[in-house]
């Protein structure tokens, strides 16, 4: 690779290589405060589809140690999205030390709130709104559950805000550092937000989960306790490596569900969601 960057995010080291200089410069700028890994665990490559596509209608294929055979290429302008998707893919297919749950996570009082949901449920936006109110941002893509301890490890990557989430975050976090606005991506408009210094400084500090939420944006406000059987099924579907972990995954997931209450939270706007979370959060 002509251009490359190595960085550590929580327990994982990444090396990101690119045929182009610009995406690496952008990543280096946004991830400037992150440590460098001793040895990267995963490699992500942003490669030109054909040699001449470095210059003519530049388009990139995302590849790495773990690959999907039919991933669609992305235009050069969406390189940041491609890099983030590449990192997600490496973890989703390769990580074995942790049970990975598709969830965002924030911390308060030394305990974690996990928010699991499909794309568009508002995981990233809620984590951002809570971080703006003093919660520690732990991650917006994967909650990393350590099977041996049940601890949730942080993975404070760039926060991937979509569509209305971009303006919502900008309102509550005026001094925030954003990446370029990416239009017309497969997920709509995307803009990446750099986590605050607290989140980066505490990236090696895991905490016990305390509450599990299944948020859903766009519906009338409602809170419903989710019984353990339903939470179990939802989280097996929300995990990228539950099957691959086998017995360790089963033990980690059942221990999590035994240990924390779960709620389905429908919310029409961020303010309502914050109030719902504050009401559910057990005081220490």
């Amino acid at each position: 690779m002509r251009h490359a960057l190595s960085l550590r995010i929580g327990p994982f080291g990444f090396r990101i290589g690119s045929d182009w200089r610009a995406p690496i410069e952008t990543l280096a700028d946004l991830y400037a405060d992150y440590p460098r890994p001793e040895l990267p665990d995963y490699t992500v490559r942003l490669e030109a589809l054909r040699p001449w596509r470095r210059w003519i209608r530049p388009a990139m294929a995302v590849s790495g140690d773990y690959m999907l055979p039919d991933a669609a290429p992305l235009p050069l302008a969406q390189a940041l999205l491609a890099a983030e998707m590449g990192m997600n893919l490496q973890l989703a297919l390769g990580a074995r030390r942790f049970l990975l749950l598709h969830a965002s996570a924030v911390e308060r009082d030394g305990r974690a709130l996990l928010m699991s949901g499909e794309s568009g449920a508002g995981k990233s936006t809620l984590a951002t709104l809570l971080a703006a109110r003093g919660w520690r941002f732990m991650g917006d893509e994967f909650a990393l559950i350590e099977p041996e301890t049940g601890l949730a490890w942080p993975l404070p990557r760039l926060i991937s805000l979509k569509n209305d989430g971009v303006s919502a975050a900008a309102r509550v976090w005026p001094g925030a550092r954003f990446g370029p606005l990416l239009h017309d991506t497969p997920k709509g408009t995307i803009r990446h937000l750099v986590p605050d210094a607290t989140a980066i400084a505490a990236m090696d500090e895991p905490v016990q989960p305390a509450v599990l939420l299944f948020p859903r944006f766009g519906a009338a406000a409602a809170v419903r306790a989710v019984p353990p059987g339903e939470a179990f099924v939802r989280l097996t579907q929300a995990s990228t490596n539950y099957v691959a972990l086998g017995e360790a995954g089963f033990a980690a997931l059942t221990a999590l569900i035994r240990g924390v209450p779960a709620y389905a939270v429908d919310y029409p706007d961020g303010e309502t969601a914050i109030a719902q979370v504050e009401a559910l959060w057990p005081e220490p």
């Binding site: 059987g229 539950y242 086998g246 017995e247 089963f250 033990a251």
Partner: peptide, 22 residues
């Protein structure tokens, strides 16, 4: 391995690696 979950019992079947909800 099994785990009671309200109306269900989750069972991890070691030979196949499949989780069953019973």
């Amino acid at each position: 391995m099994s785990e009671p979950l309200d109306a269900f019992t989750a069972v991890f079947h070691r030979p196949s690696g499949i989780t069953h909800l019973l």
